[in-house]
Write a protein that binds this DNA or RNA. Structure first.
Lengths: 130, 130
DNA sequence: CGTTACATTTACGTCAACGTCAACTCTGCT
DNA sequence: AGCAGAGTTGACGTTGACGTAAATGTAACG
C-alpha cells in the first residue's frame, strides 16, 4: 500500500528536497505531518500535497499562491457558500493556467523559429569553411 | 512606426513595471537603453527584450536564466563555436519548456477533475436544501 | 527666474525561501 | 553505560529581486 508514513529523511530522498525545506513548509502550514513525540511522520496526504507544491514552484507560483491551490483540494463540502467560493477560486486558477499555457506555446514557437535560424547560420558557416 | 523610443515613465506605463525595475534590469545588462545626457531612452529592441524578460518571469525563470535566453536572440553569427554553443543552449531550453508544457497540461487536467467534483458537490447540496 | 514634473545616482531596506550552524534529545545498538 | 545517527528547535545568514529614501539634475512653462 501507499499508506506507509515516511520519516523526514525518507521524504528528502523521495522528493529531492532538504529537511529544512520540509520543516519550513510545515511552519507555513503547507504540510502537517503527524507527530510521534517530537518527530515528524509524513503521510500519503503530505506526499500528495508536496507534489503539488513542487509543481507549483516550477511554474513560478509563490508559496502563498500554492497554499491557496492546496486549499482547493481540501474543501469541506458541507457549507454551500464555502464550496461555491472554493469552486470559483478553482475556476479562476484554471483560467490563469490556461492563459499561461497559451503563453508557453507562444514562447516555444518563437524559440523554435530561433533554432531554425541558428541551423541556417551553422550550415552557411560550414559552407564557408571548406 | 514602432521605431519611436520611450522614456522611462512611458515604459513603466506600457509594461506595468516600476522605474526601479527598469534601472535594475539595465544594471544587470538585460536592457541597454540609449542615453541622452544621463537620461534613458528605450528602443524597440529594449521593448522586445523586456517582453521576453517578463514572460520568462511568469514561468519562474530567474533573471540569470533569462539573460541566457536573451543571448540566444543576440547571436553574432561569425564564430562557429559560439553559434553552436548558443544553439545547443537553445535546444536545451526548448526541451525544458516542452517538459514544462506537459506538466502544465497535467496540472490543468487535475484541476478540471477537481472542478467536476465541485460541481457534483454543489448539485447535491442544492438537492438537500429544498 | 522660480517652480513643477520628471529623471538620475547612491545606498540602505525588505521579503521570500530557504541554508547553516549550534545545542540539545531520542532511539537503538553494542 | 556509552556512543552513533537521526531528528528537533531556535536563531542568524544569504541570495535574488526589487522598494524606498535622499540628494541632485534638468527641461519647460508661466
Amino acid at each position: 500500500m501507499t499508506n506507509e508514513t515516511l520519516t523526514i529523511s525518507q521524504m528528502c530522498d523521495a522528493f529531492g528536497v532538504t529537511a529544512r525545506t520540509l520543516r519550513f513548509y510545515e511552519a507555513k502550514e503547507l504540510l502537517s505531518p503527524i507527530r510521534i513525540g517530537s518527530r515528524r511522520l509524513f503521510t500519503r496526504r503530505d506526499r500528495a500535497r508536496l507534489k503539488i507544491i513542487l509543481r507549483g514552484k516550477r511554474f513560478g507560483f509563490s508559496l502563498e499562491d500554492i497554499r491557496q491551490v492546496l486549499d482547493l483540494y481540501e474543501r469541506d463540502s458541507t457549507n454551500e457558500v464555502q464550496v461555491r467560493h472554493t469552486y470559483d477560486l478553482a475556476k479562476a486558477r484554471l483560467a490563469q493556467m490556461e492563459a499561461q499555457r497559451a503563453e508557453l506555446d507562444e514562447a516555444i514557437k518563437e524559440l523554435k523559429a530561433e533554432l531554425a535560424e541558428g541551423e541556417k547560420t551553422i550550415a552557411s558557416l560550414r559552407q564557408a569553411a571548406e
